[in-house]
Amino acid sequence: MIPGEFTYHRPSSVAEAVAILVSHGDEARPLSGGHSLIPMMKLRMAAPEHLVDLGGIADLKGISEDGGAITIRAMTTQHELIESDLLSEKLPIIRETSLLIADPQIRYLGTLGGNVANGDPGNDMPALMQCLDASYVLTGPDGNREVAARDFYEAAYFTALAPEEILTAVKIPTPPAGHGWAYEKLKRKVGDYATAAAAVMLSMTGGTVTSCSVALTNVADTPLYAAEAGDILNGSTLDETTVGKAVAAAEAITDPASDGRGPAEYRTKMAGIMMQRALARAAERASA
């Protein structure tokens, strides 16, 4: 549990950080909250020669709303997400999800940017960002580009992020007032990754679903946006048959590993159960 040797950098601007990444290529890794990277380094499963600590960059902090979108800068901690009045009012599902991540000590350090950029399928925020149709701002030597969360994840720890890029912000379209929302997570204990989890956002009018999106955590080597499940539910009254069909569609796209949380079959079924329970709670919360 002791890491190899590395050089520690603490730049004060994004440009400076990008420059360090450019000059060291694959041998450098940005460090945000460190709750994934540092344990990996202690296990010597990751051995970056240069650690670029983003903690000294003031520009990477803060939550703001502008023109129908909420922007969360990458180094905003999960604790700050929980404390944000803006998010509690406009995007309460972020608070609900954050409260299910690990424990308070970890949330004081863990960041949204690190959580979504690392590509760990166990992290909760990636599926939530897919559910919310967020996009990620990636800053590199040639400036910024935006990639949709739904297109960002390629495989476990493989993403669209290039080695010389830093994920600097997350942009989320502000959902309509009165929407329903829920994040349901089954885990063995506080601090554990999900056995399976589901994020649901929906809007309803007169008992009928007018928009619905569903995404799943830790039941494949990437987060899963369950497009078909959302489509099936859209326009329905959330009757038992339709929900059953949507759950089946969501379960069909899962491909979980068998591990200490249970065999693959169980985890697939739990994804379905979590989705069903999230749907029910989201519907209860939505203004009809």
Binding site: K189, V190, G191, G260
Partner: peptide, 28 residues
Amino acid sequence: MGQEIRYDETGNVLGASFMDFFIPTAVE
């Protein structure tokens, strides 16, 4: 309710960390 040192059939010890080895917190 879950605390276990497991091995797979090829003799790999599974879950030899507090990620998998169940130590309940006050919450559980």
